[in-house]
Design a binder for these strands. Sequence first.
DNA 1: GAGTGGTCTAGACCACGAA
DNA 2: TCGTGGTCTAGACCACTCG
Lengths: 270, 270
Amino acid sequence: MPEKSRAKRSSAGPHEGAGSTVDHLLRTVPPRHLDLARELLGEISRGKPPVGGLLPPELEICASTGLSRYAVRQAVQTLCELGVVERRAGIGTRVISRQPVARYTQVMDTLNDLTRYAQDTLFLPEFRRTISVDDAPEELRAASDLRNWYHVHGLRYGSDKAEGPIALVDIYLDAAFADAPALQTTTNQPVHMLVEQHYNIRFTRVDQVIQGTLIEGAAAARLDVPPASPGLRIIRSYFAGNRLVEMTVGLHPAARFSYSMSFELTRSGA
Amino acid sequence: MPEKSRAKRSSAGPHEGAGSTVDHLLRTVPPRHLDLARELLGEISRGKPPVGGLLPPELEICASTGLSRYAVRQAVQTLCELGVVERRAGIGTRVISRQPVARYTQVMDTLNDLTRYAQDTLFLPEFRRTISVDDAPEELRAASDLRNWYHVHGLRYGSDKAEGPIALVDIYLDAAFADAPALQTTTNQPVHMLVEQHYNIRFTRVDQVIQGTLIEGAAAARLDVPPASPGLRIIRSYFAGNRLVEMTVGLHPAARFSYSMSFELTRSGA
DNA sequence: GAGTGGTCTAGACCACGAA
DNA sequence: TCGTGGTCTAGACCACTCG
């Protein structure tokens, strides 16, 4: 069947444009490509075609829907952006998920958010040294088999230093990436950015784990909180390719620090 | 000048397609729309047009580059996806950033991540009731002036129930969105998805705050941990438009729950 | 060689926003 | 009313993959 019936919109002829002459009298209808996207999405969610299977070729969808290839491609692109299908020239359009993925995106910016609290805060290093992996925290030992790590330890303060430190920070850096000159001086640049710039590498993945914890003993004293105070432990792992290059561990008193983030609906709507 | 010179590719005439007859003998050249996107990106990064300013109209870019509107729109769409410009029908294409933003994207999935622990976990509601805002937590009172909220309280268990609950959960729902039938039954669907489906709305923003906390008294007993145990308190606020529609508060024992996430370098590179 | 998605053109009507 | 971006058509050549 070359033409689907469509409420509130007459069927389209050659060069007729998006809507008929009566559209504006009734109600705006969604664009045809979104209708098609929804229809395809519905079918995929019901397993037709299944994950791993191919959508019909674009020209076939054109024929079955009566739409031009442009409109069909827009619909397929929507599914692509939703992470539901994947297009390959010469192969076809493959279903990779039955449900949309990545509907929300964390509002993030290299400078502000991965190290969001680095804005208006001050990191004061206390010592730097090269250590053996045996002296590193278990998270690091578990994630890498490198022997030598460069360790920077310090305190981070918020904008009002009188309120006390907001974190006890340990930075572990793959020793091969530890001879950047800037690492030797106090800086308010996040270490991972210095490393990226000096070695001209890109971190392709950052993992982050947030744990609740008690702040005890020496750490409590350093952070100026009573022993057994609640806190957050945040471990970040920076990967370049599949190689773990940097790990940071922050211990934050709950009274002075909370971790907040915001997610927005991914643009492109659909 | 209606035509830009282009190394390795002859100028295009009507209906000539993407490349000349000699392209395949030399080397594949990037598509014209990517060239244009790069060019525009470079100009924007040099402040032309400045942030807040408008790009030339599409037809003007067509004229100055000799490309069709389709190719120009592809280029502008690329800038759009990079978060550099914003298109508004009737207005134009506005520059919103000199540099691509959102270099990293949280790997996220409606089903898995915003409620990531909802996978393989079970939420057991204990009671539901309508409350006055005065009985709601301070975060809710501070964020909304609505009077009535629908409150669901329960426990969430991990895949191994014998290990004890992984969260004490309170869900507060704008009473106007609380009469979806599915809310009255036990379900493993996250509440925010039920609300979206039943009322056909989309949450456009989700804010999340993570705090370290101590688990005391009755909560400790319910979660089966000793008093003064460390934990995480996670508050999520779901907005549809600018209206706060749902807030959830989870209290997680540190021994059984940590919050982990992964960020990946945004695809599309450019 | 045949078929797929990727790119591109020329031309058209529409909804929206501002003057 | 006019110009913007949004949608759409018909037709074309290309690069890629596979048999």
